[in-house]
C-alpha cells in the first residue's frame, strides 16, 4: 500500500531531517473514508482543471455563428462576452474586433466542410456583406502570415480586381494564377479570415450565409 511506502520512505530519510521529527511518532490505521475523500478531491481537481484547460485551448464553446464555411462569435468584442470568451481571449493574448468596429469571420473548411489544405486550389467569391472596408487574409497552420513570392497574404476591398457586375473571384493556389491570386503556404492546413470593418448597423445582426463569399475547392494536385 502507498501508506507503507510513505512510512518506509520517511523513516529512511529521517537521518537527513531535523532531530525534532521522530518517525516513531507517526501512527497509522487503514481508513478507507480518508482515502475516498482524498480520491474525491483529486478527481475534482484533475477533471475540473483538465476540462478548463481543454476548453481554453479551442474556440469559445457558446455564442458561435456559422455562415457557410465562415465561423464567427459576434459577442466576442462586446460587453456581453461570456466567461469562456473572456478566458480564451486572455489566454490567446488576442484583441478582438469590437462590435462597433466590425466583425471578423474565420474559415477552416471549404463550402463542403472539407478542411482547407494548401495542396489544393480554391476559388473564393463572389460577394461580401456591405462594409466600408473588408480584408481577406490567409494564415498558415500556426496562425502566421505565409511567406509568398509577391509578399502578399491578403486582399482588401480596395485592391481587388472586380468583374463588370461588381463581383470578384480570388484564387488560392500554390502556383501563379491570373487575376486575384493569393499564394498558399508550401504545405499543411491553412485558414482564411474575413474582416468586415465598419458594417452598417450593429455587427453580428442580419447576417445571412448567402451574403458571404463561397469557398469552392477547384481541385487537388501535386
Amino acid at each position: 500500500m502507498d501508506h507503507h511506502a510513505i512510512l518506509t520512505d520517511s523513516s529512511a530519510r529521517a537521518p537527513a531531517r531535523a532531530t525534532s521529527i521522530r518517525p516513531a511518532a507517526v501512527s497509522f490505521r487503514f481508513n478507507p473514508t480518508a482515502l475516498l475523500i482524498v480520491y474525491a478531491f483529486l478527481l475534482a481537481l484533475g477533471l475540473g482543471l483538465g476540462s478548463a484547460y481543454w476548453v481554453l485551448k479551442g474556440d469559445p464553446p457558446f455564442g458561435g455563428l456559422r455562415l457557410g464555411p465562415w465561423e464567427t462569435w459576434p459577442k466576442l468584442g462586446s460587453a456581453d462576452a461570456d466567461p469562456y470568451m473572456r478566458a480564451i481571449v486572455a489566454k490567446r493574448g488576442q484583441v478582438p474586433l469590437a462590435t462597433g468596429e466590425g466583425l471578423s469571420l474565420t474559415a477552416k473548411t471549404d463550402n463542403e466542410g472539407r478542411r482547407l489544405e494548401s495542396g489544393c486550389t480554391y476559388r473564393i467569391g463572389s460577394v461580401t456583406p456591405p462594409a466600408r472596408l473588408w480584408t481577406l487574409t490567409l494564415y498558415d497552420g500556426d496562425g502566421r502570415l505565409p511567406a509568398s513570392d509577391l509578399g502578399r497574404a491578403s486582399f482588401t476591398s480596395s485592391e481587388i480586381l472586380r468583374n463588370q457586375d461588381d463581383t470578384f473571384t480570388i484564387t488560392l493556389a500554390r502556383t501563379l494564377s491570373a487575376g486575384n491570386w493569393l499564394q498558399l503556404p508550401p504545405n499543411g492546413p491553412f485558414s482564411v479570415v474575413l474582416r468586415l470593418y465598419d458594417m452598417p448597423g450593429a455587427a453580428g445582426t442580419n447576417l445571412v450565409a448567402g451574403n458571404f463569399p463561397v469557398i469552392e475547392r477547384v481541385g487537388c494536385g501535386s
Binding site: P32, T33, L36, I37, Y39, A40, F41, L42, L43, A44, L45, G46, L47, G48, L49, S51, A52, Y53, V55, L56, P83, Y84, R86, A87, V89, A90, K91
Partner: peptide
C-alpha cells in the same frame, strides 16, 4: 462509498471548472 466519492468528485470538478474559467482572465 466509492460511487458516492466519485459523484462528489464530479460535482466538485464542475465547481473547479467554473472557478478556473472565471479566474483565468
Amino acid at each position: 462509498r466509492f460511487l458516492l466519492a466519485t459523484l462528489v468528485g464530479l460535482v466538485l470538478a464542475g465547481g473547479v471548472h467554473i472557478a478556473a474559467i472565471l479566474a483565468a482572465p
